[in-house]
């Protein structure tokens, strides 16, 4: 088993406006992109972040070997209960998620 962060070059997250957060997975190599792209459906990311998978936008950018996810913040930025004003530490959760063999989905 490997952690996603060990397979890819970088995972980054940030607010996309006060009500959305976006997570960018920079895979680095073509092989890593293929592996991550296959193992990381929107549903897996929704589960990880506690968000309805139907509200998770998923984007593939093969030219720069990136998979990107955008979803509504459970708590709007800065409202009472928000733990991370910039949403930038959320990336860690995905970076530390493990590939599960076989079938290789990330959890």
């Amino acid at each position: 088993m490997a952690r996603l962060g060990e397979v890819v070059r970088a995972v980054r997250s940030k607010n996309a406006g006060p009500f959305m957060v976006t997570v960018d997975v920079f895979c680095g190599t073509e092989a890593a992109f293929q592996r991550v792209n296959a193992a990381l459906p929107a549903a897996a990311v929704g589960r990880l972040y506690g968000v309805d998978p139907e509200r998770v936008g998923r984007y593939e950018l093969p030219a720069i070997r990136v998979v990107k996810f955008s979803f509504p913040r459970p708590v709007p930025q800065g409202s009472r209960g928000d733990r991370d004003m910039h949403g930038a530490q959320w990336a860690v959760l995905l970076a530390e998620a493990e590939f599960e063999e076989p079938g290789e989905s990330v959890r």
Partner: peptide, 11 residues
């Protein structure tokens, strides 16, 4: 190209 992703929900 990576900057199109930045703080942008849809790249």
């Amino acid at each position: 190209a990576a900057h199109m992703l930045y703080e942008n929900a849809d790249p």
